[in-house]
Design a binder for these strands. Structure first.
Lengths: 218, 218
DNA sequence: TGCATTTCTAACCAGTTAGTTGGATTGGTT
DNA sequence: AACCAATCCAACTAACTGGTTAGAAATGCA
């Protein structure tokens, strides 16, 4: 008879695994893959280095686990966005708003993704989870665009792929590169006030792009 | 009497320095700061490790030199853009187009900047060159926006800082994260065709943002 | 030519790194 | 109570890392 685990907090494989994963997330996102130190992850997790290798195999596999876990957090947030019943404009606004908030609140994911891109995406390519993660989102965005064209509020011919990349770019780059951007723009980009202004700017850019009907000169 | 150097290709301090800097640019941009190996830089430059330390001091100072050098390349490109005589719309288009092309053609700079941001911009902060590099560009962009408002083709109230960050974001993120983006969008983002489409998309987004006059719902 | 300086080289070093080993402790099962 | 697998730990290792040293060869100048 399977007795429910009473988790006396000592000698709990699941907790140990989770602790290692959390410590690894911090270390990898702060230092990147090459800069991260396995010894530090082990000691900060409260566990031993052998536990780390026992549960995850090696440094690369641990990084993949961290990446999938963090990416999963993003997916969970995006799934929570409900577009049903909204007008195409409101739906687009909602999607943009959720994307903005998600990246601002997950700077560690941004740093992990940067690390992964430095490695040309070798780990992400092997992950089925990541491969299929965005399919529902693109489907939803395509529907919103189509509905908007039918309703007459969006212009036709907008590529959902480029639109999504733009939505992500406008917040991702701002957060990811704020350290060097702050030097050249002389402004504290991550202050509440400037973040609010940035969000308004981004949403306006996305919505004006889809709604403006006039043809462009040049 | 200073005899003009005849550069017999052997025992030339300047050439050696340049070779080390180039090898370092490749190594740092491919592997990041922590992942880059000083031994590899030395051997690939054809010089000796002691030369590297003689000319640059240590790994960090070498990285700073690489970063400044690469950043300088971007500045040179931007300076070459002539906006005089163009209409505000054409000037904005030209600025956007030059920014797009510059980042697409300098992927190593993007990778170096990502590395630097992982380190929270410690090296860039200390560089006077980088600190002042963008001042002329922001001045030019502000003028273009003001002229456009006066001429009636741009709406008022656009923040030049956020607009420049957006211009950069829309291409930077696309290039920087193409490895992981390609996985989720299932498309070869760096093909000539898709790059052309991306550029058109970005320029349209920037121009529509500045020119569209209608107020936005919500 | 003689001599100091610059450019260069190879071998070396101390500290660090990812990953391993062998064994101790614990908790559930019978 | 006795066993066994799962969980945990400290100490170890072989390879690698950024950085140094001592001295050789080329160069410029008197």
């Amino acid at each position: 008879m399977p007795v429910p685990k009473t988790a006396v907090a000592k000698r709990d494989a699941e907790v140990t695994r989770k602790n290692i994963l959390e410590a690894a997330t911090i270390e990898f996102s702060e230092k990147g893959f090459a800069g991260a130190r396995v010894d530090l992850i082990a000691s900060r997790s409260g566990a031993n280095k052998n536990m780390l290798y026992h549960y995850f195999g090696n440094k690369e596999a641990l990084f993949t686990a961290v990446l999938e876990n963090a990416y999963g957090g993003l997916r969970a947030r995006q799934r929570a966005v409900k577009l049903g019943g909204l007008s195409p404009e409101d739906a687009l606004h909602e999607l943009g708003s959720a994307t903005f908030d998600a990246f601002v609140e997950m700077p560690h994911l941004i740093r992990l993704l940067n690390s992964e891109n430095l490695l040309n995406g070798v780990h992400a390519k092997q992950s089925d989870l990541i491969n299929e993660m965005y399919d529902p989102l693109f489907a939803a965005l395509s529907t919103v665009l189509e509905d908007g064209v039918k309703a007459g509020c969006f212009r036709p011919g907008i590529d959902p792929t480029n639109l999504y990349i733009s939505m992500a770019s406008l917040v991702y780059h701002y957060v990811s590169n704020h350290a060097t951007l702050e030097i050249i723009v002389k402004r504290d980009l991550m202050s509440d006030e400037n973040l609010r202004a940035r969000k308004a700017h981004v949403l306006e850019m996305i919505l004006r792009f889809c709604t403006s009907k006039s043809s462009l000169a040049s």
